[in-house]
């Protein structure tokens, strides 16, 4: 049996973990190394760690912290944030992570995706994108943690990323982020139908049923969530959790 991956997506800001709503209002949720250790003990399928300030501030990834995090992970880890070059990707992989996530840099040129895929293989490169709904029911992508409008359609960009060598697509919805009201299913389906590589859907999960919908109706291959795995109850108390015994 193959199981769909269920992936906690953790947002780094400085040395802390935060959770956003619609890509704004980051709330501190804890120490990253400690949180990752707990997720590892809970035997999560995989982790995605995104530094949400790195690209916007034009800053390098925090290699020391990433190596410390990777040392706690007995599952695959993807890191994104501030990656523009093959040399950075090489250094990150040496730190102990499996996959690098390329988002903002790919709007300038997909060359870096091709470079990394050529050396480390497509499975080591995740092409990521952040989409926002338009007034007319379509979607457009935003770079640099949702701050720069690109005018590009997600499904078109997914195809470009796949062709460049991305081994999977990480698709985030800015509108649904942190809302816990369910995924943007039309967005996911549109992208999943355009590419052959796996699509990881992120943004909006509030219940295990939402995860099921993204897989069944959205046709995603894997699902990611932040709030669902770090908050508990309607007052959003911080509690790291992960559903066990639920197979999708």
């Amino acid at each position: 049996m193959t199981r769909a991956r269920v992936i906690p997506c953790l947002l780094l800001r400085g040395h802390g973990l935060v959770k956003t709503r619609k890509f704004s209002n980051p709330v501190y949720v804890g120490d990253p190394v400690n949180a990752v250790r707990i997720f590892s003990e809970k035997e999560v399928d995989e982790l995605v760690i995104l530094d949400i300030d790195a690209s916007r501030e034009g800053r390098e990834p925090n290699y020391e912290l990433i190596a410390e995090i990777a040392g706690e992970c007995f599952m695959p880890v993807a890191y994104g944030g501030g990656i523009k070059t093959l040399a950075q990707a090489r250094r990150l992989i040496r730190c102990g992570i499996e996959k690098v996530v390329i988002n903002s840099a790919a709007f300038d040129s997909t060359g870096v995706i091709r470079d990394i895929a050529d050396v480390f293989g497509s499975q080591a490169v995740v092409g990521a994108m952040d989409a926002r709904r338009t007034l007319f029911g379509g979607h457009r992508l935003f770079a640099k943690s949702g701050t720069v409008e690109t005018g590009i359609k997600p499904e078109d960009h997914a195809e470009v990323l796949e062709r460049a060598g991305a081994g999977e697509i990480f698709l985030n919805s800015i509108d649904s982020d942190g809302q816990m009201q369910g995924f943007d299913l039309p967005l996911i389906q549109k992208v999943a139908r355009r590419v052959r590589v796996p699509v990881i859907a992120c943004g909006g999960a509030g219940t295990p049923d939402h995860l099921r919908q993204a897989l069944a109706e959205g046709e995603a291959s894997a699902v990611a969530a932040g709030s669902l795995f770090v908050f508990h109850g309607k007052h959003r108390a911080v509690l790291i959790n992960y559903p066990t015994g639920i197979f999708f």
């Binding site: 193959t2 399928d45 999977e168 590589v197 796996p198 894997a222």
Partner: peptide
């Protein structure tokens, strides 16, 4: 069936 195969298997 998507390729690459990426995920947990029995």
């Amino acid at each position: 069936i998507r390729v690459p195969y990426m995920g947990w298997g029995d």
